[in-house]
Amino acid sequence: MTYKAILNGKTLKGETTTEAVDAATAEKVFKQYANDNGVDGEWTYDDATKTFTVTE
């Protein structure tokens, strides 16, 4: 399944996708990606669109 992350960081804005077996696995991948890029904020998840959003 393909999951998407939308990054609304102070220094990084954009989107990325990952293939994962479930939302929990995708969330770990996206949170690591955000952390590696200095983005730390509030996370939300929309199951209907399989989209995570982080906003700083």
Rank of each mutant, 00 (worst) to 15 (best):
Y3S: 02
A26R: 00
E42L: 11
T16M: 15
G41W: 06
A48Q: 11
A20S: 07
Q32V: 08
T55H: 07
T16Q: 09
G14V: 14
T16A: 12
D22G: 04
A20T: 05
V39W: 15
V29Y: 15
T17N: 05
K28T: 10
K28R: 12
D22K: 02
E42H: 11
K50C: 06
T16L: 15
F30C: 03
A34W: 06
G14T: 14
K13T: 09
F30E: 00
N8S: 07
K28P: 03
T16H: 12
E27N: 04
Y33T: 03
A26N: 01
D22L: 03
T49V: 05
D40E: 14
A48H: 11
K28C: 10
G14Q: 12
K28E: 10
V39A: 04
K13S: 09
E42K: 10
D47Q: 09
V21W: 12
A5F: 15
T44N: 08
N37F: 14
W43Q: 00
E56P: 06
V54T: 02
E42Q: 11
K13G: 05
K10Q: 12
A20W: 02
D36R: 08
A24C: 14
V29H: 12
Q32F: 05
T51C: 04
Y45V: 01
F30W: 01
I6K: 05
T25Q: 13
T2D: 04
G9C: 13
M1V: 13
K4N: 06
A34Q: 02
W43N: 01
K50D: 01
A23L: 09
F52S: 01
M1N: 14
F52Q: 00
V39M: 11
G14K: 14
E15L: 10
T17C: 12
L12R: 07
V29L: 10
Q32N: 08
N37H: 15
F30T: 01
G14M: 15
T49H: 05
E42S: 10
Y33S: 01
K10V: 14
Y33A: 03
K4F: 12
I6S: 04
A24H: 09
E15S: 11
K4A: 05
W43S: 01
G38A: 06
G38R: 06
T2A: 08
E27K: 10
T11A: 10
L12S: 08
N8R: 09
A20F: 03
D40S: 13
D22S: 07
T55A: 05
N8H: 09
Y33G: 02
T44S: 11
G14S: 11
K13P: 04
K50Y: 09
A5G: 06
L12K: 10
F30V: 02
D47P: 14
G9A: 06
Q32S: 09
D36P: 00
A48K: 13
G41R: 01
K28H: 08
K31Y: 05
K10D: 07
A48V: 12
K31F: 06
T2F: 09
N35E: 14
L7K: 00
A5Y: 09
E27G: 07
T53V: 08
T2N: 06
Q32C: 06
N37R: 14
F52P: 02
K50P: 02
D22I: 01
Y3K: 02
G9T: 15
Q32P: 00
E19T: 14
G41I: 03
T53R: 06
A24V: 10
T18V: 14
N8F: 10
L12N: 07
V21T: 11
E19A: 08
